[in-house]
Design a protein around this nucleic acid. Sequence first.
DNA 1: TGAATACTTAAGCATATGGTTGAGCTTTCG
DNA 2: CGAAAGCTCAACCATATGCTTAAGTATTCA
Lengths: 111, 111
Amino acid sequence: MVELSISLDRAFHALSDATRRGMLDRLSRGPASVSELARPYSSSLAAIHQHVHVLESSGLIVTEKHGRTRQCRLSPEAVLTVETWLSDRRRLWEDRFDHLGKLLETPEDQT
Amino acid sequence: MVELSISLDRAFHALSDATRRGMLDRLSRGPASVSELARPYSSSLAAIHQHVHVLESSGLIVTEKHGRTRQCRLSPEAVLTVETWLSDRRRLWEDRFDHLGKLLETPEDQT
DNA sequence: TGAATACTTAAGCATATGGTTGAGCTTTCG
DNA sequence: CGAAAGCTCAACCATATGCTTAAGTATTCA
């Protein structure tokens, strides 16, 4: 349980940054080196390397050193973990809202 | 697009803390006041209030002041947003893994 | 009215995050 | 071999986060 919390902490944290999400999108089109991941951004390579490290320690990606380059690729299991957490909750919540029905539709909520 | 990124930033950030996820779980069993949300935790009420603020500005919950208490409840739309983002990616990634199949498993001996 | 309740805000503090630059380490190639 | 490529590491810095305590505001109720 604590383990799960810790990995959810890291996974959600990793996902909370637009640069890292962009890197994940890039990786969804196939593995890439650190330099390739850095290409769309103006940050230094060192900064991108730090993002790679955050993504890897969250489990969202796995990397392997090949010669002088590091290949990064996605790890769908970790995504499944967070997605499962979310969809479990959403199911619960929707059940609740189904039960409550009209309560949600009260006009006071028009903010 | 920028808007979406910003709200994903906030939503994922809000989800990256175990206390806030616990508060969301509590809210999945129905609306609660700030004090009720604080009950399971040893932190000060002020700290919990800050968590409520993070959750609210992420859009994951909505709150309303009733007299001297503030009622908090879930906002399923925001959860749907982040869950959709995740499941879209997972679909992409799984497609990739399906297509590539063995390619991903090739032992890379470039030495 | 006056006390209790339930937040709310402010200030301060320790730690974390995300960026930089610059140096260093392998690996590759002419 | 020696230089370039590609990453890695270490400092350093600015800002953000999460917590505390203390004080302030608004409601409720005896």
